[in-house]
Lab assay of single mutants.
Amino acid sequence: NITNLCPFDEVFNATRFASVYAWNRKRISNCVADYSVLYNLAPFFTFKCYGVSPTKLNDLCFTNVYADSFVIRGDEVRQIAPGQTGNIADYNYKLPDDFTGCVIAWNSNKLDSKVSGNYNYLYRLFRKSNLKPFERDISTEIYQAGNKPCNGVAGFNCYFPLRSYSFRPTYGVGHQPYRVVVLSFELLHAPATVCGPKKST
């Protein structure tokens, strides 16, 4: 009989979030998941669920729940959905087409922007091929755009693959930082360890 609440607040209220290319994953298990708490945590810009209804979450049980978190800019949030393409979905964080879970995003301009520009958040701009779903690539190998090998040196047709967002508070919403948490629900042929409040007794 599990009584402890799932530590969603640790994920959502973390002081620092990860850069999207090096997104963070927390496995959540053996706890009571009260998803209604999430609705009250922040004024969400996005709370979209796929393959599951957000209002039914509190009635369900899962084997595992994974919470992935990272920062992107406002106009990239739409890429965090099944079947999307674009720089983020292709080279940084890719959801599977049959994704079961929820994408939660909110504006973090007050936390993640600086007047002089916050350069701490990076994204991958160049990659030889698209990522597979939930693949994480943290390599910093020089990207070869031409025929000549780069031998690890940046220059003509040889690019450092990561680029930094420079978040400034005066930017338009599309270029402001957004914190994203992706909850993916895993149903294996194994005992369910993460249940809503109704199912945990």
Rank of each mutant, 00 (worst) to 15 (best):
F8A: 03
N157K: 12
T140Q: 11
E135M: 05
N13Q: 05
G86I: 06
A67Q: 03
D34T: 05
K56E: 12
F167S: 06
L111V: 14
G172V: 14
V52R: 02
I88S: 02
L38S: 03
K199R: 14
G86T: 04
H189Y: 09
G74M: 04
G101C: 01
C61M: 08
G152A: 08
D34M: 07
C195M: 08
Y66T: 14
L41W: 13
S166G: 14
S29F: 08
I138L: 13
Y91W: 07
K199S: 15
K94D: 01
A145Q: 11
Y39H: 14
L5W: 10
S116K: 13
S19F: 01
F62M: 09
G172T: 14
F12W: 03
E76V: 00
D59M: 07
V11F: 06
K148M: 12
Q176C: 04
F8S: 03
L122I: 10
L188R: 14
S69K: 01
K199D: 13
T63Q: 10
V115S: 14
V181L: 06
P82D: 03
C61R: 07
Q79H: 05
C102K: 00
S29H: 12
N92I: 02
S166P: 07
V180M: 03
W23Y: 06
Y21G: 03
G74R: 06
A81F: 01
V52S: 03
S164M: 08
Q176R: 03
Y35P: 08
V153T: 15
P177V: 03
V194H: 11
K110W: 06
P54R: 14
Y93M: 03
Y121L: 10
Y39F: 15
L95W: 00
Y39N: 14
N30Y: 05
F99Y: 02
R124M: 03
F156Y: 14
D75W: 02
Q144E: 11
L183S: 00
K48P: 00
N157L: 09
K198H: 14
P54Y: 11
F160G: 08
Y66A: 06
K148T: 14
V194L: 10
A190R: 11
Q144L: 03
T46L: 12
L125H: 15
K110M: 09
I104D: 00
D75R: 07
I138N: 15
P197Y: 15
D75H: 07
P197F: 15
S164I: 06
D34Q: 04
I72Y: 01
L57T: 05
N4D: 12
D112V: 00
C150T: 05
T201C: 12
G86K: 02
S139M: 04
N30K: 07
F167N: 05
Y171D: 15
R25G: 02
Y178L: 06
T140F: 07
D90Y: 05
S116L: 11
D68K: 01
K199A: 15
P197I: 15
Q79K: 04
T193Y: 10
P177A: 08
G172Q: 14
R179I: 04
P191H: 12
G51M: 01
G155E: 09
S113M: 07
L188G: 15
P161G: 02
T63D: 12
T3W: 04
F70Q: 02
W23G: 04
T85Q: 10
N40V: 06
G152W: 05
D90A: 08
V194A: 11
S129E: 15
L5T: 11
F99P: 00
R163A: 12
V37Y: 12
P177Q: 04
G51S: 04
D34K: 04
F134R: 05
A154P: 14
A154F: 09
N30S: 08
D75E: 11
C158D: 05
A18L: 02
S53N: 14
N120D: 12
F62W: 15
A89Q: 02
K114C: 10
R27C: 08
R179F: 04
K128R: 12
P54C: 07
V153Q: 14
E10S: 10
N64W: 10
R168K: 15
R163M: 10
G152M: 07
N58S: 12
L111R: 09
T140R: 10
V20S: 04
L187F: 11
P43G: 09
R25S: 02
A14H: 06
L57E: 05
Y171N: 15
L188I: 13
A42Q: 13
P96M: 00
K199E: 13
N40I: 05
I142F: 09
L60T: 13
L162I: 10
P191R: 12
N109M: 10
P43S: 09
L41Y: 15
T170C: 08
A190P: 10
F45M: 15
T85C: 05
N92A: 03
C150V: 05
I138E: 13
Q79P: 01
C195V: 08
G74V: 01
Y66S: 08
P177M: 06
H189E: 15
C49V: 00
Y121H: 10
N120F: 08
Y35G: 07
N13Y: 07
L125Q: 15
F12I: 07
F45E: 15
Y66R: 06
R124Q: 04
N147Y: 10
T3I: 06
R78C: 11
A192L: 12
F44D: 15
K94H: 07
A105D: 01
D75C: 08
E76P: 01
T46V: 13
T15M: 05
N64P: 11
E141V: 08
T3S: 12
F185H: 00
R124Y: 02
N107Q: 04
E10I: 07
D97F: 07
N40H: 12
P177E: 04
P197A: 15
E141P: 07
Y165H: 06
A190E: 12
I142H: 06
V37R: 13
A89P: 07
R124L: 04
A81R: 05
G51D: 02
V180P: 00
Y21W: 06
F134N: 07
R136H: 06
L5V: 11
V103G: 00
V20C: 04
R179W: 01
P169L: 03
D34A: 05
D98A: 08
N40E: 11
N120C: 08
L183H: 00
A42V: 11
Y21K: 04
A22G: 06
P149Y: 07
N1H: 08
N64I: 13
Y50S: 01
E76G: 01
K26E: 06
R136E: 04
D59T: 12
A190Y: 11
L131H: 02
S164K: 14
F134C: 08
K114W: 09
C6D: 04
N107S: 05
S116V: 12
T15L: 07
Y50H: 03
V77R: 05
G172S: 15
L57P: 03
D34R: 03
L60S: 11
K56I: 08
L131Y: 02
V11Y: 05
Y93V: 01
K110F: 07
K26I: 10
G146H: 06
F185P: 00
F70C: 01
H175L: 10
L122K: 15
F44M: 14
L60V: 11
F160Y: 14
A33S: 08
Y50P: 00
T63Y: 08
D97N: 11
R163I: 08
S200A: 14
E186M: 00
R168V: 11
K199V: 15
W106H: 00
V37G: 10
N92P: 03
